[in-house]
């Protein structure tokens, strides 16, 4: 049962692989970006999972409460930064897809490849 108890980690690996599969297998550039986004979100889950302390609550210190157990705030802060990085990457990726659509008229990878070959 110990393995099942780590279900958050199983979920993380599953989501990671789903995203990775989409990045590799899909030829539509938007779908690739969706896959990339899922791939990155999986890592957020890993960090959020690792900061949980058994019985711990949100790490906000209150006056008069001294025997409280808190979860580790550092990974949450780290992952906030990583989320920002992920959003910027996604925005830039989508902007590039728009430019590709403008100059090639398609966002299918194989058709772009064909258009480049023909030239």
């Amino acid at each position: 049962m110990e393995l099942l108890g780590l279900y958050n980690y199983w979920a993380y690996v599953a989501i990671l692989m789903i995203g990775f599969y989409a990045v590799i297998a899909k030829s539509n550039l938007i779908k690739k970006l969706i896959g990339l986004s899922i791939f990155q979100s999986a890592v957020f889950l890993l960090y959020i999972t690792m900061d949980k302390v058994d019985g711990g609550t949100a790490p906000i210190i209150q006056a008069g409460v001294s025997d409280q157990i808190y979860s580790n705030p550092l990974p949450q802060v780290l992952i906030l930064t990583a989320i920002v990085v992920g959003i910027s990457t996604m925005a830039l990726g989508l902007a590039i897809v728009v430019r590709i659509k403008e100059s090639y008229g398609t966002i299918e990878e194989d058709q772009i490849h064909l258009l480049d070959q023909r030239k």
């Binding site: 690739k32 990339l36 791939f39 990457t89 990726g93 590039i96 897809v97 590709i100 090639y104």
Partner: peptide, 13 residues
Amino acid sequence: MPSVFKYLVMGTI
């Protein structure tokens, strides 16, 4: 553009 897209995907991975 397509080469940057490839770089972006691989770089992010």
